[in-house]
Design a binder for these strands. Structure first.
Lengths: 216, 216
DNA sequence: CTGTGTGAAGGAGTTCACAGCG
DNA sequence: CGCTGTGAACTCCTTCACACAG
C-alpha cells in the first residue's frame, strides 16, 4: 500500500484511539502488541486496525506484531502531538467553563490558551490559568498566539456571528458545540459536536434497534 | 419504499438535525418546505434528505414539498420526543456539572432527573434542580424513575466500574464521555463522545487535508 | 411545470481469508 | 509457525438523473 496517499476519514477518526492506548501500553512497559490485542482494547476489528495501519506503510513485523514505542512515536508525529497546539475558546458559559478545566493535554500537547466572552463580569479574569478576553481582542490574540483552532460554546443564536468573527480572525478549524449548522467558506473545517443530537440518536436506537451496537 | 424496514444508522443520526430545523420553521410560521431549502439549512445534500425521508414512507407531495407541521409531528413521534425521557448522570465533576445545567429539553422532552457521585460534599445536594445521590442509591433510583439511559462523566479510570454498576442497575444505553472504551454486554448501547479524540482528529485534518469538509 | 421518490451507479468502509515474511 | 499486509468480496451510504404525481 502506498504511503503519502490520502488517509480515509474513518481511519483518521480512529487514530487518536490507537494513540491513547499505545501510550497506556508504553507506560506499562509493554514492548510489542498485536492487532488482536489492540482490537480487544479499543473495540475495533483487528482487520480494520491492520488496514488502518497499512495506509501509513508497513508498520509491523510479520509473525511478531507491532513495536509499541515505534508505533507510539509514529502516531505522535502523525497527530502533531510532538508539538504544542494552542486552541481558543469562545463562550465561557457552563460548557465553556467545563472545557477550560478539561485537561485535553492529559498527555497531549493540546491546550486552550485564550478564552473570549462578552460578559463584563468574566472578561479580564483568569479562569483556571486561562485569560478571558473581550471579543474585540479576538483578532489580535489569535494572531499573536498563532491559534488556528477554536472551540465554539456560545448560545445557539450567537453561533453564526461568532464563527464569522473567528474566520475573520484567521481561524482554520472550529469545534462547534452549538446546534447551529455554520455557514463558512469551504476552506474552514467544522467539527460539529451536538450533544442533544447524540442523545436523541441514542434514544432512537434504544427504542427501535434493541440489541445492537451504535458505533460512534 | 417499504415502511417498517430498519432505518440506516447514517439516516438516524441526521433525524435530530431535521427535527430541530423543522421546529424553527414551524415556530416562524412556515407551512411548507422543500428538500432543497432544508438542505441549505442543515448542510445535507437534498437527495440524501429525500432518501432519508423515503425510508419512512411518502412524507411529501410531488411538486409541492413537505408540510412542516405534519413532518414535525411525525419526527416528534419517531424520536420519542412526544413523551418525557429521564436520564441519569454519573459523575458530577466539571463536565458533569455543565451537563446538569445544559438544557437538553430546549424544546425536547429529555431531562436529567438524577445525578450520582461519590464526593461527600456534593451528595445530598440539589444542583440546578437535580438531586445528587450516592452511588449506593443508583440501583434504587434508576428502578423507581424507570431510567434507561445514563450519561457517564467520571474520570477515565472509573469508567468501566461505573458502567458495570449502571448495567447492573438496569440501564440500557450509556453516553460515554470517558476516554475508556467500555466493555459491556452486547444488548447495551454505548455512544462514545470523546472530546480529545474529536480535537485531535480536527487537528489532523487541518494539517493534512486542507480545504475540505470533515463531516461529523 | 415543480419537486418528490427511487432505480441505478458510484464511492467509502469493513471484513474475509490467505499468501508470504520474519 | 504466527501475525502482518492486502486482494477481493461485501455491505453500507451517497449521489445522479429522471419518471411521474400533483
Amino acid at each position: 500500500m502506498l504511503k503519502n496517499q490520502t488517509i480515509p476519514k474513518a481511519t483518521v477518526k480512529r487514530l487518536p484511539l490507537y494513540y491513547r492506548y499505545l501510550r497506556i501500553l508504553f507506560d506499562s512497559g509493554k514492548q510489542k502488541v498485536s492487532s488482536k490485542e489492540l482490537s480487544e482494547a479499543v473495540k475495533v476489528d483487528s482487520a480494520t486496525i491492520r488496514r488502518d495501519f497499512s495506509y501509513f506503510g508497513e508498520l509491523g513485523k510479520r509473525g511478531y506484531g507491532y513495536d509499541v514505542e515505534k508505533l507510539l512515536d509514529f502516531f505522535a508525529k502523525t497527530l502533531n502531538d510532538d508539538r504544542l497546539t494552542n486552541v481558543a475558546l469562545v463562550g465561557v458559559g457552563n460548557l465553556g467553563n467545563a472545557l477550560l478545566k478539561y485537561h485535553f493535554h492529559q498527555s497531549n500537547s493540546i491546550r486552550i490558551s485564550a478564552a473570549f466572552d462578552v460578559r463584563e463580569d468574566i472578561v479580564g479574569k483568569i479562569v483556571d490559568g486561562i485569560p478571558v478576553y473581550p471579543i474585540s481582542d479576538m483578532e489580535e490574540q489569535i494572531r499573536i498566539q498563532q491559534i488556528d483552532i477554536a472551540i465554539l460554546t456560545v448560545p445557539a443564536d450567537k453561533g453564526q456571528e461568532n464563527a464569522e468573527k473567528l474566520v475573520a480572525a484567521g481561524i482554520k478549524g472550529i469545534m462547534n458545540f452549538t446546534p447551529a449548522r455554520l455557514t463558512v467558506s469551504s476552506d474552514i473545517l467544522v467539527q460539529n459536536v451536538d450533544l442533544t443530537n447524540e442523545l436523541q440518536t441514542l434514544i432512537y436506537f434504544l427504542n427501535h434497534y434493541k440489541k445492537e451496537q451504535t458505533g460512534e
